[in-house]
Structure formats: structure tokens, C-alpha cells
Design a protein around this nucleic acid. Structure first.
Lengths: 116, 116
DNA sequence: CTTGAGTATTCCTTGACAGGAATATAACCG
DNA sequence: CGGTTATATTCCTGTCAAGGAATACTCAAG
């Protein structure tokens, strides 16, 4: 099992390029060349990003001749989901409370254009 | 509508101290003083972290005399949850398929993760 | 063993960010 | 108003990460 609140996981996913790579790999595994092209970064930069993702356990490599095919590993993202779990009750209860308030004050009709 | 994959959201949550603050505020709203004490940081540092969280929309402030009581805003974390959604299928439904794809993986497993 | 393709690593520079100390601002009390 | 509490902001410094260029590594083919 992966470490849940690991710093390297957050650190890896904070970078937009790395999130883009992760999104790419969600579709299907890809060799480095494809990722380089899709990212618009140089090959070395991409390779470094891939290393960060590897160290965070987010991706796995399969060697295919000279190519290295990267694939997503679901476990760390599942760990993120686990981190998120306690907060999920927050917006559930918020929606619930909002629903109750709307229900109770339906005749009263205050509409302060609630959004953000 | 809140911006879903906003960079500031990831950026805010990447910092361990800020995640700690968020966790603190999950229990209940708190004035700055309490957060300072719980974090073990200086008051200015804490205040700066709170600003980052504010800018990311993760917290709201309520003024109570000289105190400022911070509370969690669920929306951005819900946005994180939304980001996570496409990946959730990875470890729910198609975990087997992915595992099959990965089973050839010649892993170079370096694991220097011993912090946090 | 040489060559070439594909990828990783090192070196270097630049920019962002965290943290502390000092200072500014705001609100309450007398 | 002056003083005190609670918090925010600025200034400064050290650290760390990102990106490009150049280089090293690895595998397959001949």
C-alpha cells in the first residue's frame, strides 16, 4: 500500500505538465516520445517529470526495445481519494443544509444570488 | 462556478502546513491564534499560509472583534474530487485490465521516500 | 565493435516560495 | 486619544524546483 499523505504525491501532481502527463496516461500507456510531443517540452524536461512521477509511484515503466512505455499506476491516486474522503462529508452536509434552508425559507424568498 | 483544476488550488494544498491547517479547519472553524499554536509556526508565516488558502478559495474568514475566524470552504475540495473522478474508474472497474497491461512491467523501483 | 535510436542524467541559470524579524493595520477598551 | 490585542504585510534571505543544452547510458542491428 502506498503512503497516503506522502508529500511526493502532492508534489508530483502540483505541476501542470505532470498532471497533463497523468491525464495522457489515463487514456493509455505511452512511450516517452509520444509524451514529449504531447507536452511540448524538451525530451530531457519530460524525462525529469517522468522521474518525479515514477518516484511518486504514479507511473510504471515497461521497457520495449529502446522505448520505455509509461503507464499509470492507480494506487497513489487512490491514496489521494482516501485523503479526500473526510472532506467529502463537508460538501455533502453543506448541500444538505442548503437544501434544508431552501426548503424552510421557500415562502420567505430571500435571493442574495448565492454563488462564488 | 469555481475553477476546477485551478493551479492555485493544487499549489495551496501541496504545502504540508497548509494541508495541516485545512485538516484543522475540517474539525471546526478556528481563529488565527489557534492555528498558529497548532502549526508551530510563527504568526506571520501562518498568516501568509492563510492568505494562500484564501486566494485558493479554500477558506473563508469571519471577523469576530479583533479575531479572524477561519472556516473551510468545501467547494474547491469538491473540485479536486471532480478532477479525481475520471481516475476513479481505474481502481474500481478496469483495475484488472490495467493490471494486465502492467504485468510485463520491468520495474525499476527506487524508493527513497522516507519523509513526512 | 560501431552506429543509431530512444531515453536518462548532469550542469547551470533563473525564478518562485517558505520562513523569520520588523512593521503596519484594525478593533476593542479605558 | 492612547494603549493593547489580534492579524496582515513588507523586507530580506536561503532553499528548491523547472527548463534548456550538452552528455551519458542502453538496446538492437549489422
Amino acid at each position: 500500500m502506498t503512503t497516503v499523505s506522502d508529500a511526493s504525491l502532492w508534489n508530483a501532481l502540483t505541476d501542470p505538465h505532470r498532471r497533463a502527463i497523468v491525464a495522457l496516461l489515463l487514456e493509455r500507456p505511452r512511450p516517452v516520445g509520444e509524451i514529449v510531443e504531447a507536452c511540448g517540452l524538451s525530451q530531457p524536461s519530460t524525462s525529469k517529470h517522468l522521474k518525479v512521477l515514477r518516484d511518486a509511484g504514479l507511473v510504471r515503466v515497461r521497457q520495449d526495445a529502446q522505448r520505455r512505455v509509461y503507464a499509470l499506476d492507480p494506487a497513489p491516486i487512490a491514496a489521494l481519494d482516501a485523503w479526500l474522503a473526510p472532506y467529502r462529508t463537508l460538501w455533502n452536509s453543506s448541500l444538505d443544509e442548503l437544501g434544508r434552508r431552501l426548503d424552510e425559507t421557500s415562502d420567505d424568498n430571500d435571493d442574495p444570488s448565492a454563488k462564488d
